Simulated scan of single mutants.
Amino acid sequence: MGYYVNVEPGVKLYVEDLNPGGSKTIVFLHGWPLSHKQFEYQFNVLPSKGYRCIGIDWRGFGDSDKPYHGYNLDRLADDIRMVVEALKLTNFALAGHSTGGAIAVKYASRNNNYGLSHLILIDAAVPTGFTKQTAAQLLNESLNDRPKMMRDITDMFFFQYISPPFADWFFQTGMQAAGWSTAAIIKMLSEFNLEADLGTINVPTLIVHGTHDKVIPFSQAEEMHRKIRNSQLIPFHYSGHGSFYCERDKLNQLLQQFVK
């Protein structure tokens, strides 16, 4: 079931809500520059196991509205809070991949862990995102040849083999975003630092990270683990930045074991 939630005047976010009657709820936040569709291989499995799975497209991405403003962590986290309140969610797990992981951490910190039972960080861009050099290169490519940038991102994202049709699907998912929001998030990813936010998390936290990640190095996962109380780090030895697909069966099993 899909619907829209108003998060501010003139801005609506698209929400995919699977198995609303499920006994446990997991809210999924996608990575840059994707959408809730990246979690297809979680949504294929978890609702049939009794989980309510909610995928939210951030502003500027997927099927959500694409305004020219609001592309900073505080606003993106506040958007999630608006959806949480609109859906009256309580005792839910929040799972964020890559930049979605940064938004999840900011949500927990900014809202005193409001409504959270668990936090799941998948190849998260935490505590920092891109280096200045990487961001400058991606920003230039995004503003001048976004399709080439997205193709290059696809090529470096996965450690396991992906078929050409899958690569095309992934590419098109990224191209569904607006050009201005894609560029704005690149800039954001070079500016934030969430080290201070990590100490405010007080819910059980699962950290999943590909050891072959070329986008966000595994050392950042180790730093998260050191700084988040009551966290566990599970290395994914056969994954790059796309562990949600490279080791999808393992991730699905872990999510079921963690969120009971």
Rank of each mutant, 00 (worst) to 15 (best):
residue 1 M to I: 07
residue 1 M to V: 07
residue 2 G to A: 03
residue 5 V to P: 11
residue 6 N to T: 15
residue 6 N to D: 03
residue 7 V to W: 03
residue 8 E to T: 13
residue 10 G to T: 13
residue 10 G to P: 06
residue 10 G to M: 10
residue 10 G to L: 04
residue 12 K to N: 15
residue 12 K to V: 01
residue 14 Y to W: 14
residue 16 E to S: 11
residue 17 D to H: 07
residue 18 L to S: 14
residue 20 P to D: 09
residue 22 G to L: 11
residue 24 K to D: 01
residue 24 K to M: 02
residue 25 T to M: 02
residue 25 T to S: 10
residue 26 I to Y: 09
residue 27 V to Q: 01
residue 29 L to N: 04
residue 35 S to N: 08
residue 43 F to S: 11
residue 44 N to T: 03
residue 45 V to H: 04
residue 45 V to R: 06
residue 46 L to N: 07
residue 50 G to P: 14
residue 52 R to F: 05
residue 54 I to R: 10
residue 57 D to L: 12
residue 59 R to I: 15
residue 62 G to V: 06
residue 62 G to E: 12
residue 62 G to C: 06
residue 63 D to V: 01
residue 65 D to Q: 08
residue 66 K to Q: 12
residue 69 H to E: 12
residue 69 H to N: 13
residue 70 G to F: 08
residue 71 Y to W: 09
residue 74 D to W: 11
residue 75 R to F: 01
residue 79 D to Q: 05
residue 81 R to M: 13
residue 81 R to V: 07
residue 82 M to C: 09
residue 82 M to G: 12
residue 84 V to L: 04
residue 92 F to Y: 15
residue 94 L to M: 06
residue 95 A to V: 04
residue 95 A to K: 07
residue 102 A to C: 06
residue 105 V to N: 05
residue 108 A to G: 11
residue 108 A to R: 14
residue 111 N to V: 03
residue 114 Y to L: 06
residue 115 G to L: 02
residue 117 S to A: 11
residue 117 S to W: 05
residue 118 H to L: 03
residue 119 L to T: 05
residue 120 I to H: 12
residue 121 L to R: 10
residue 122 I to H: 03
residue 122 I to M: 09
residue 130 F to K: 04
residue 134 T to R: 11
residue 135 A to L: 02
residue 135 A to Y: 02
residue 141 E to W: 06
residue 142 S to L: 02
residue 142 S to M: 08
residue 145 D to I: 02
residue 146 R to V: 03
residue 148 K to P: 00
residue 153 I to E: 00
residue 153 I to H: 03
residue 153 I to L: 15
residue 154 T to R: 02
residue 158 F to Q: 00
residue 159 F to Q: 12
residue 160 Q to P: 07
residue 164 P to N: 05
residue 165 P to E: 08
residue 167 A to R: 14
residue 168 D to E: 10
residue 169 W to F: 15
residue 170 F to Q: 03
residue 171 F to P: 01
residue 173 T to F: 05
residue 175 M to A: 09
residue 178 A to S: 15
residue 178 A to V: 05
residue 181 S to P: 02
residue 182 T to V: 10
residue 183 A to T: 12
residue 184 A to C: 08
residue 184 A to L: 11
residue 186 I to D: 08
residue 187 K to P: 00
residue 194 L to Y: 05
residue 195 E to V: 14
residue 197 D to S: 15
residue 201 I to P: 02
residue 202 N to F: 05
residue 203 V to T: 00
residue 205 T to I: 03
residue 206 L to G: 02
residue 206 L to Y: 03
residue 210 G to V: 10
residue 211 T to W: 00
residue 211 T to G: 01
residue 213 D to N: 07
residue 214 K to V: 02
residue 215 V to K: 01
residue 216 I to W: 01
residue 217 P to N: 04
residue 218 F to D: 05
residue 221 A to K: 09
residue 222 E to S: 06
residue 224 M to Q: 15
residue 225 H to V: 00
residue 227 K to T: 04
residue 228 I to C: 11
residue 228 I to T: 07
residue 229 R to Q: 14
residue 232 Q to P: 00
residue 232 Q to E: 14
residue 233 L to F: 08
residue 233 L to R: 07
residue 235 P to L: 08
residue 236 F to D: 03
residue 237 H to Y: 07
residue 238 Y to E: 10
residue 238 Y to A: 05
residue 238 Y to N: 14
residue 240 G to H: 04
residue 241 H to K: 06
residue 245 Y to D: 01
residue 245 Y to M: 12
residue 248 R to Q: 10
residue 249 D to A: 10
residue 253 Q to K: 13
residue 255 L to Q: 11
residue 259 V to C: 12
residue 260 K to F: 06
